[in-house]
Computed example of a mutant assay.
Amino acid sequence: MMTRRLIQLYAGLILYGFSMALMLRANLGLDPWDVFHQGIAMRTGWSFGTVVNVVGAFVLLLWLPLRQRPGIGTISNIVVIGLAVDASLYLLPTAETLPVRAALLALGIVLSGLAGGAYIGAGLGPGPRDGLMTGFVRRSGWSIRLVRTGIELLVLAIGWLLGGTVGLGTILYAVSIGWLVQVFLPHLTIAERPPRPALDLQ
Rank of each mutant, 00 (worst) to 15 (best):
L98M: 08
W46E: 10
W46K: 09
T94Y: 06
G56E: 06
F48K: 04
T74L: 06
V51D: 12
L30Y: 06
L6C: 04
W63R: 09
N77H: 14
R25K: 08
N77K: 05
L28V: 09
R101P: 12
L61H: 13
P65Q: 02
I40W: 04
L61N: 11
G49N: 11
G45Y: 05
L91Y: 07
I7V: 15
L91C: 10
S19A: 11
V100S: 13
G56Q: 02
G116Q: 06
N27F: 04
Q68S: 06
Q38Y: 01
S112R: 09
V80H: 08
G71P: 09
R43Q: 14
F48Q: 11
A84G: 12
L15A: 11
W33M: 14
L98N: 08
Q8L: 11
S19L: 02
L62F: 10
L92D: 01
Q68Y: 03
W33K: 08
A11C: 12
G108L: 01
F18E: 00
V59M: 00
Q8T: 14
G113P: 15
A115L: 06
Q38V: 08
F18N: 01
G45P: 12
F48I: 10
G17S: 05
I78T: 07
L111A: 02
A95R: 07
V51N: 10
L104W: 14
A103L: 12
G56N: 06
N53I: 15
L9I: 04
A115K: 03
D31L: 11
L83M: 13
R67A: 07
I7W: 10
L24Q: 15
Q8V: 13
N27P: 12
G116L: 00
S47W: 03
L28M: 11
V80G: 10
F18K: 01
L13A: 00
G29L: 00
G12R: 04
I75S: 10
G45R: 08
L30C: 03
V54F: 07
T97N: 11
A21I: 13
L107N: 05
G73T: 07
A41G: 14
G108I: 07
I78E: 00
V51T: 14
L24T: 15
L105I: 03
V80M: 13
L6F: 10
A118M: 14
E96S: 15
V52K: 00
I72N: 07
L9Y: 00
V79D: 08
A118T: 15
V85F: 02
G12C: 01
P93V: 04
L30F: 01
L104V: 13
S76C: 09
L111G: 02
A11R: 05
L92Q: 01
T74W: 03
G45H: 05
I7L: 12
M42Y: 10
G117P: 06
R101V: 08
G49F: 04
P93I: 01
L92F: 04
V52H: 04
